[in-house]
């Protein structure tokens, strides 16, 4: 079983490889769950296996790091021989909560928090420690979630939502946002000072002015413009000004 779980866990790293507008992560789900379905009645040539694979490849969308919960739970449900409708209901029921949990825990928590820590470290230590520290911190959370989620889903089956109420996960959910806010707060002045130390005072004030304008534009005037597009516009405007000047 351990070998099969390892195979499924490895495939979780390719969960979004074939993301598409029709099924989103459906094929990734089918690919990851496949090793766990091989010992269904009749094996890979059997009807149960093919039917389970067909269901697994249907529309699915959730947070990639927490997909293991769904993969494990769906595989267990198939092994328990639950009716097709019940397996479909389980898949549907897991998409939203896992997605929401992952968004809050990772995208709005662990990722900005560790990236901000990496930026702060960059200003005070060797770049290797900063980059390595960021990768280590972030992936400690990431890899734990991937591996633990798969096992928890497999053990819990249709009761997988109970695994989501695990105290460590809930504690992580409560602290991820505040830690991210704290770290970004620390990073803003520290990184600003570090980046602009080669500039004179007028250029520093100019940088602060541009930052203020960016906040006003992206918060109130054009909230959907996005940083990359605004950055391109600002730099293009600056280039034109420089030429004219």
């Amino acid at each position: 079983m351990k070998r099969v779980m390892l195979s499924a866990a490895t495939r979780l790293f390719l969960f979004q490889a074939s993301i598409n507008h029709e099924r989103l992560q459906g094929l990734g789900m089918a690919s990851a769950v496949e090793p766990l379905l091989r010992d269904l009645d009749g094996g890979p040539a059997g009807k149960a296996y093919r039917a389970a694979m067909g269901r697994a490849a249907g529309f699915f969308n959730t947070h990639p790091y927490l997909a293991g919960f769904a993969v494990g739970a769906v595989a267990k449900a198939e092994h328990q021989g639950l009716p097709e409708q019940q397996v479909d209901r389980l898949r549907t029921a897991l998409k939203g909560p896992l997605g929401s949990l992952g968004d809050r825990l990772i995208w709005a928590g662990a990722l900005p928090a560790t990236a901000a820590i990496g930026l702060i470290l960059l200003t005070v230590t060797h770049p290797l420690i900063a980059v390595g520290g960021f990768l280590l911190l972030f992936n400690a959370v990431h890899l734990t979630l991937r591996w633990w989620g798969l096992g928890a889903g497999w053990r819990a089956g249709v009761k997988v939502t109970e695994a989501l109420r695990h105290p460590v996960l809930q504690a992580g959910l409560k602290t991820a946002g505040p830690v991210a806010a704290l770290m970004i707060g620390v990073a803003i002045p520290v990184v600003a000072e570090w980046l602009t130390e080669g500039l004179d005072w007028s250029e520093r004030w100019g940088t602060a002015g541009v930052a203020l304008v960016t906040v006003v534009v992206m918060r109130w005037l054009a909230p959907t413009v996005g940083a990359a597009r605004l950055g391109m516009l600002a730099l293009a405007a600056m280039l034109i000004l420089a030429w004219v000047w």
Binding site: I184, A187, I188, V191, A192, L195, T196, L199, E203, R204, G206, T207, A208, G209, V210, A211, L212, V213, T214, V215, M218, R219, A227, L230, G231, A234, L235, M238, L239, A242
Partner: peptide, 17 residues
């Protein structure tokens, strides 16, 4: 130099947001 200052400014403003 001014282009660098603008790039940093937009980046820092984005981080505040």
């Amino acid at each position: 130099v001014l282009l660098s200052a603008v790039a940093m400014g937009v980046g820092l403003g984005t981080t505040v947001l």
